Simulated scan of single mutants.
Amino acid sequence: MSQLKRRTVLQALSLAPLAAAWSPLTAWAQATTLKISHQFPGGTLEEGDFRDRLCRMFAAEVQKRSNGSLKFEIYPGSSLMKTNAQFSSMRKGALDLSLVPLSYAGGEVPEVNIGLMPGLVPSYEVGAAWKNAEVGKELNKLLLDKGIVVVSWIWQAGGVASRTKAVVDPDDVKGMKIRGGSREVDLVLKAAGAAVVSLPSNEIYAAMQTGAMEAAMTSSTSLISFRLEEVSKFLTSGRGQSYWYMFEPLMMSKTIFDKLTKDQQNTIMTVGAELEAFAIKAAKQDDIAVATVYEKKGAKVVDLNAATVKKWQAIARTTAWKDYADKNENCAKLLKLAEKLL
């Protein structure tokens, strides 16, 4: 072999590994670390807020099934970025995954407010049915168009923590400074005579502690995790009956998802779907556990009945539902499809 030819072969061999290393698909297939952000308190695989636990279970199982080609870093308590920035960041590809109430993005994508529409989801069973029903398929399609992949469909019932009196009937909120959690819930509260306060769930404690807010509607898990029993004297629980079910999925940036191999994508979606049963079970357990937590602190715990739920639903139909349907054709369509499951 001539010296020139030998040099050419050696150069080709030396560049080959570099070419492989610089291939985007190869790089992602070798090892990728994805970041999961959420606003809830951090814990472990076995203990703590079930939403944080779900993220950790998801990360561990996907890493195992992908043979380490996918790894994860979890950032609880809004430690990576502010709560309300997560959805937008996923759309831009600046955040990989987040578990966040979908309705928080209502200002950016009005259609997603259906995820916290008072009276529209009457039970966990109906919420779970959304995924494969027409409403779920349309919502999923909309989110994909907006750059979001729904990995786990998670629903949670909500309750009310209050400093001053129990919130049961709509009349109870007259003149009360209360947090609803979404534009649609706020519309119902305003119609019932409340003064609405808007803030993320991780800011409720401080607002109630200072008296800037008298009551807050939030999920049973958040009622526990954010220690609101320390600043409350009354609890309306979500066990059994609730007019307040929230869609709080584990989501992923489509930009990031599309960079993965087919096997990695399938692993993520499979594990995400498998964890939905854990989420329902854990949410139901928290609906019961929250009552015990508040009773131990001396708070008075009350429950809702079907007649009371219907009072709230009646207000919701003429306020929140109407307002939502009037926004655009997509909203009207989603609402109509959701009503089919009632």
Rank of each mutant, 00 (worst) to 15 (best):
S23G: 12
Q3N: 12
A299Y: 11
W153S: 05
H38W: 08
E46M: 13
T32C: 12
K259N: 12
S89M: 15
A161Y: 04
K311W: 15
A16H: 08
N305C: 02
Y104G: 04
T44Q: 00
M252K: 02
L187T: 11
P76E: 05
A21R: 00
T267L: 04
F58A: 06
L199Q: 15
E61M: 03
I36C: 09
T308K: 15
L102G: 07
K296P: 11
A212I: 05
E329Y: 06
K259P: 12
G175E: 08
Y124V: 04
S69W: 02
V302I: 00
T8Y: 02
D96M: 03
L10S: 14
Q39T: 10
C55E: 04
A29N: 03
V150K: 02
K327G: 07
G136W: 14
V167T: 06
I224Q: 07
K5S: 05
V151E: 13
F72Y: 01
M81Y: 10
Y243E: 09
Q241C: 11
T261A: 10
Q285P: 02
L335V: 09
A332V: 03
S242M: 12
N328V: 00
T33Q: 13
T236V: 03
G180Q: 14
A307M: 07
Q156T: 07
T44A: 01
P41E: 13
L15Q: 15
L342I: 09
L10N: 13
V290D: 12
Y243R: 05
A212V: 06
Q30P: 01
K165T: 02
K310Y: 13
